[in-house]
Structures are given as structure tokens and as C-alpha cells.
Design a binder for these strands. Sequence first.
DNA 1: GACGAATAGTTCGCTGACGAATTACCTTGT
DNA 2: ACAAGGTAATTCGTCAGCGAACTATTCGTC
Lengths: 178, 178
Amino acid sequence: MAETDWTDRHVARWRDHWVDVPFDDDVEGVVVRIGRLQRYLKGTKQRAVTETGLQDFEYDTLHSLMIRDTPGTASPTDLADELGISGAGMTGRLDKLEQAGWVQRTVAPDDRRRVVVEITKAGADIWRRAMALRGSQEQQMVDVLSAKERATINRLLRKMTLHVEAQDPDPSAAKSKD
Amino acid sequence: MAETDWTDRHVARWRDHWVDVPFDDDVEGVVVRIGRLQRYLKGTKQRAVTETGLQDFEYDTLHSLMIRDTPGTASPTDLADELGISGAGMTGRLDKLEQAGWVQRTVAPDDRRRVVVEITKAGADIWRRAMALRGSQEQQMVDVLSAKERATINRLLRKMTLHVEAQDPDPSAAKSKD
DNA sequence: GACGAATAGTTCGCTGACGAATTACCTTGT
DNA sequence: ACAAGGTAATTCGTCAGCGAACTATTCGTC
């Protein structure tokens, strides 16, 4: 352990104060570090996205629309589930995205209750631009690990994701604000 | 690689569609998995906190107030920084927390611009109750790893947090909604 | 083939958070 | 000693998102 990070200091400070609560250094370490890395990623995304002129929630929605088995097209409900927001919230987002010209709504001809959301050329283009800006920053975070370490951490992370994905059987309760 | 998780499938699906963007399986894997684990943790916290009758943001604020070198007392600005919300937002939260009787505001006698936020007995009690509910669920996530694996993943996570903490020199831009 | 239940999406009123402006207080330089 | 500038918190207007009620369409069954 060459250096101590924020989490080490946090854990050291709190090991004593813990009363009536199970406290395991390694568990706390994993949980807190994941939180801190996620916070960092959120920040880098924020910066990348803002640079394109998109708002955070606009990018999130376009992103969700693109990274699916049917890229660029989805129902509002599916998107809402995937993004972890309410139906009402989704309506609001789509109003703004459609207004801005990034997506397009059409009613499904076979079931007129359904709405099909499709990304426009402009939408796909700006999403790709934001993606490019993002990628490099994420790369930077992971690049401090060697190839071998990257493989190891993915193996361990996968062990945990498999566990949590098994608990929550819904595969669409997914990606959140990455 | 015994089983594939959501991220494996995501990466497999997207390796091809990637154009004009650097795409590394392992980098994407780390980033996406961290996001998904964090989402899960957010969910477990949510459930634990709701069970105590607290609202999410109330718990977050009490938590931030407790896990510091001066547990149970802080300035509004420090709390806002730590929680990553604006000063205005903090004022709003403190209004509600004070109203509910979980915290108490007093002006600092030596510098009357300053406000000292202190947790009340009731506040500390309910926070502790929520903590206990939380702990066990976090434990569960990490428990799929062996003791040795837990040590390894913490080492690798620390490598990354040290990197990102070095980039963002502000140590208070910290914990977010854990 | 018609009426009740189910489903997809939207509208509505409210809430938490934001940025900008404001108030109150302290510090510094002359 | 007092004006100019800085700092801590609050107020104000706005916005995204929520849950609940509502509308429009389809399904199921008798």
C-alpha cells in the first residue's frame, strides 16, 4: 500500500466511531471507492457533454436510445425504464429533444397507443461527438492499471455485478446516469 | 469467465458499432460495471433509508454531517461542497432538516456570518438506524468475493482513486450520493 | 360484437435543486 | 476610522422530475 487515498483516511477515521453497525474495512473500501470513481466519471461526462452544447439529460437520453439492440429507436417506456426515470419525466425529455430536433416521435401504425422514438441524423451526430470527448477521459482513469490488472478488476467486478443482477431479475433496470 | 453479465453483452453488442471512437473492452467494462454497481448501491440505500421514514436527501445530509473529522457539526458551505449541491440547495435542505428536528442551526459567536449546523440526538439516532439497515446490504454485495479478492480489488480501485483524486486536487469535492 | 380490464402515453400540481442577485458581516489598506 | 472588497448564507425565479389522475387505444371474454 504505497499511498493512502481519501477512502483509506475515511475508513481509518471511522473504524472506531462505529457502534451497533457491522463494519468491515474492505467492504466499506469497495463501496466508498466505487462511489468516488462514479462521481469522477459523472464529472468527466458532464464536462464532455457540456462542450458539445447538449444538456446532461439530453445526452443521457440519446445515449440510451443508441446503446440497445435496436439502436436509434425505442418506445418511451423502455427508455424511461432504462434511464430510471418516470414516464412523466420521459415525456418532458422527449418534448425537449424533439423540439431541439435530436429525435422524432411517430405513432406505431399497428398499435396506435404506442409511440416510436427515433433518433435523427443530427441527434446521432451530436451523440457521437459527445461520445468521442468522453471516451478519452474514461480511458485516462483506467490507464493507470496495467493490461493484466484491467483484466483482473473486470473479473472481480463481474463477480459482483452477476450477483446483483441475479438479485434484481429485471434486466431493464439498468444503466442510470453513467 | 464462467458467466456473462449485462456488461459483457453490452460490450459484445457494441464493439462493432463503434466508429470514430476509441473503444477498449476492458476500459468500457470497468466504467460500465462501476456504474451498474453504483446504481445497485443507490437502490439498496434508497430502500434502507425509506424504511426509517427519512427522505433520501435528509439521510444524505445527516450522513455527510456525521462522517467528518468533527462528527455532527459543520458549516452549510462545507456540507454543500461535500454533497455536491449548491449553497441555495443546502439552505433548502437545512430548512427541512431543522423543521423536522434532526439538526439545529446557530450563528457562530466569533464570526456572525457563519452558521454552525449541529445534529440533534434524534438526528443521530435515526441516522444510526438507517446506517444499520444499509450496512448489511452492502456487505452482501461484496461478500461474493473472497477475503483475498476483496484485498485485490481494493488495491486496484485505490490505484484509480489515487489517480482521479490527484487530478481533482479539491479533497472536499467528495462523496456525492453514495 | 360489446363492455370491462389492461396498457401506453400525456397532463397536472408539487418539490428539490440550481444560478444569480441580495443581505449581512468581516477584513484590509490608506 | 472608514471605504472597498471579500465572504457566508439566504432569497428569488426557473426548471427537471415525480406520482397521481386522465385519455386513448387494444385485448379478453361472455
